Simulated assay, not measured.
Amino acid sequence: METSLTLTLRRPGEIEITAKERPAIGDREVLVKVAACGICGTDRHIYHGSYPASYPVTIGHEFAGVIVETGKDVRSASIGDLVSVNPNIWCGRCAACLEGMPHLCAGMTALGVDLNGGMAAYCAVPEHLLYRMSPGTDPLKACLAEPISCVLHGVDRLQMKAGSRAAVFGGGFIGQLMLQALRMQGAAEVVLVEPQPLKRRAAESLGFAAIDPLSEKDKLERLTDFDVTADCAGAGDVLMQCVRLTKRGGDVLLFAAYPQGKAVPVEPFDIFRKELRLIGTFTYPDTQLRAVRMIEAGMFELDPIISEVALHDVADVLEGKRDDRIIKGVVRLP
């Protein structure tokens, strides 16, 4: 049997890279030779044990690759197809699934969380999770269909009107995507609030205003009456700041994946008195086809915010050792 390098998270904080055999596939599965896999904030939470996962597991739920083998009952995918993957597997039987909200499935499992994912040369993937992409698409961008799909779902839930003003807190990869998605949705003004210079510079290079909440507190205090604010940071008192900056009758999008069990300060009176909508958003049910089209059309500026890293460097990224140099790490698999 052919063996290849696989990254396994044995338990929180313990990564092992070993040679493993190619996984076997079922009748309705394909074997994807992974070309690239993104490192996500959720991966970091799994690494630190603050997001539920099934250990040991090969992490990586943002990935794309080429199909090299198909099960006997596979009909809509072929060997040689370049595909991106929706990692979420829904039960199809719970109330959420039956009511058209499969992303809220009570029994959902996910590749890279509960089942082995994309930080390996090969991954077995159910046929219905595949999205075919144009053969010439850069794999480092193709693998980002999953996070872009999540951002599109969040923006859809906002139902934002063209000409709106928006503020995004947190300039990590998701925050950078959110800035661009809000602008494409028709926002007349989109401002980033972010303390790290690297992330502010990236946003500014893409034409967005950026404010340092530490050194420019006076400027932050003067901001007010945004139609939309988005918490893409998941830290400190960001959620309270979003509530303060949002206009009466406005929307606050809670996008950040706060660690399970973490509580944050918020003043309910402001939500009540300003009649704000506090909107949660979790993964996505139906946006990956749009994400694929937008990647292929080059609608998102991705080059300034992604960095290629080696499989052996994933632990450093998960531990935050490269946060001053990398906004989004993407692993190119051999």
Score class of each variant (00 low, 15 high):
L179M: 15
A210C: 13
Q176G: 04
G207L: 10
A181Q: 07
A166T: 07
G250R: 00
Q176C: 12
V252L: 11
R222A: 15
T224D: 13
M184D: 14
V228K: 00
Q196T: 13
V243Y: 00
V191L: 13
V193H: 02
A187D: 05
L223P: 04
A210W: 02
L179N: 01
D227T: 13
A145K: 00
D227V: 11
G234Q: 05
K199R: 14
D251I: 08
P197M: 10
P147S: 10
I174C: 02
S164N: 14
L254R: 02
R222Y: 09
D251H: 12
T246H: 02
G249A: 10
A233N: 07
S215G: 15
L144N: 08
L140G: 09
Q185G: 13
D237R: 11
E146L: 15
G170N: 06
L140F: 15
V191W: 04
G175L: 05
L206G: 05
L198I: 13
M184T: 13
V228L: 11
L152R: 04
P197T: 12
V228H: 03
V243F: 05
K219T: 14
V243S: 03
D225H: 11
T229N: 06
D231C: 11
L223C: 13
C150L: 08
G249F: 08
L223S: 09
A202Y: 01
V155R: 05
K217P: 07
A233G: 12
V155F: 02
L152D: 01
Q180F: 09
E216D: 13
D237W: 09
D156N: 15
L223H: 07
D212L: 11
A202E: 02
T229R: 04
C143K: 09
A181N: 03
C242V: 06
K161G: 14
Q180N: 08
